[in-house]
Measured scan of single mutants.
Amino acid sequence: MATVKFKYKGEEKEVDISKIKKVWRVGKMISFTWDEGGGKTGRGAVSEKDAPKELLQMLEKQ
């Protein structure tokens, strides 16, 4: 499965696309949330040019 790689608060992170729940556009950035388990929700953002095609497809479906 595809993953999204991004930096959050200076830390490199990687999230499996299948865990992503919500995707939206903020200017030229793609923001998203995912389920971290245990009732926690993670947040992240990646530039439109660095976003994997699967993430962009999720954005178009909404």
Rank of each mutant, 00 (worst) to 15 (best):
M1W: 14
M1Y: 04
M1C: 14
M1Q: 13
M1H: 15
M1V: 06
M1P: 06
M1L: 09
A2M: 15
A2D: 05
A2G: 15
A2K: 05
A2S: 05
T3R: 06
T3S: 07
T3G: 05
T3A: 03
T3D: 01
V4M: 01
V4H: 00
V4I: 10
V4R: 00
V4G: 00
V4D: 00
K5Y: 03
K5I: 06
K5E: 02
K5L: 03
K5Q: 08
K5A: 03
K5S: 03
F6D: 01
F6A: 02
F6S: 02
F6V: 06
F6E: 00
K7R: 08
K7F: 06
K7V: 15
K7S: 08
K7W: 13
K7Y: 11
Y8Q: 06
Y8S: 06
Y8V: 15
Y8F: 07
Y8C: 12
Y8H: 10
K9L: 08
K9C: 15
K9Q: 07
K9R: 08
K9P: 01
K9I: 03
K9D: 11
G10P: 00
G10A: 03
G10S: 03
G10Q: 03
E11L: 13
E11C: 14
E11R: 09
E12P: 07
E12N: 08
E12T: 10
E12F: 08
E12S: 13
E12C: 09
E12K: 13
K13V: 09
K13T: 07
K13E: 03
K13P: 00
E14T: 11
E14V: 12
V15H: 01
V15Y: 01
V15P: 00
V15T: 03
V15M: 08
V15W: 00
V15K: 02
V15R: 01
D16Q: 12
D16M: 08
D16G: 09
D16P: 12
D16C: 08
I17D: 01
I17M: 05
I17R: 03
S18P: 07
S18E: 07
S18N: 06
K19H: 04
K19N: 06
K19E: 15
K19R: 03
I20M: 12
I20K: 00
I20C: 08
K21E: 14
K21D: 09
K21H: 14
K21M: 14
K22R: 12
K22S: 12
K22W: 06
V23C: 05
V23S: 04
V23F: 03
W24D: 12
W24N: 10
W24S: 02
W24Q: 12
W24V: 10
W24R: 03
W24I: 07
R25L: 11
R25D: 11
R25I: 14
R25V: 11
V26F: 03
V26K: 13
V26M: 04
V26I: 08
V26D: 09
G27V: 03
G27I: 02
G27C: 13
G27L: 04
G27R: 05
G27S: 05
K28D: 14
K28A: 09
K28M: 08
M29R: 10
M29E: 15
M29S: 15
I30E: 00
I30M: 04
I30K: 00
I30R: 00
S31I: 08
S31F: 06
S31H: 09
S31W: 07
S31V: 10
S31D: 15
F32E: 00
F32C: 07
F32A: 13
F32R: 00
F32G: 02
F32P: 00
F32N: 00
F32S: 01
T33M: 10
T33H: 12
T33E: 15
T33Y: 05
W34S: 01
W34M: 02
W34A: 01
W34D: 00
W34R: 00
D35S: 11
D35A: 13
D35H: 03
D35I: 12
D35Q: 04
E36D: 13
E36K: 06
E36A: 06
E36V: 12
E36M: 12
E36W: 10
G37C: 15
G37L: 15
G37M: 08
G38M: 07
G38Q: 09
G38H: 12
G38E: 14
G38T: 11
G38L: 09
G39W: 13
G39T: 12
G39Q: 14
G39H: 07
G39S: 15
K40C: 15
K40L: 08
K40Q: 15
K40E: 11
K40S: 09
T41A: 08
T41D: 14
T41V: 11
T41L: 15
T41S: 14
G42K: 07
G42D: 09
G42H: 05
G42E: 15
G42A: 12
G42S: 13
R43A: 07
R43S: 10
R43T: 14
R43P: 14
R43Q: 13
G44E: 04
G44S: 13
G44C: 13
G44D: 01
A45F: 05
A45D: 15
A45K: 15
A45T: 15
V46K: 02
V46W: 01
V46S: 04
V46A: 09
V46N: 03
S47I: 12
S47T: 06
S47Q: 11
E48S: 04
E48K: 10
E48H: 04
E48F: 04
E48Q: 05
E48A: 05
E48I: 04
K49I: 15
K49P: 08
K49H: 02
K49L: 08
K49V: 09
K49E: 06
K49W: 09
D50H: 10
D50S: 12
D50R: 10
D50K: 06
A51Y: 01
A51T: 09
P52S: 06
P52M: 02
P52E: 03
P52L: 08
P52I: 10
K53P: 08
K53S: 07
K53Y: 08
K53W: 11
E54W: 13
E54T: 11
E54G: 09
E54P: 13
L55S: 00
L55H: 00
L55D: 00
L55N: 00
L55G: 00
L55E: 00
L56H: 13
L56V: 12
L56R: 05
L56C: 07
L56W: 04
L56T: 10
Q57N: 11
Q57G: 06
Q57M: 09
M58Q: 07
M58S: 03
M58H: 04
M58D: 03
L59I: 05
L59R: 01
L59Y: 08
E60G: 02
E60Q: 03
E60H: 04
E60T: 04
E60A: 02
K61Q: 08
K61V: 13
K61S: 14
Q62C: 14
Q62R: 00
Q62P: 12
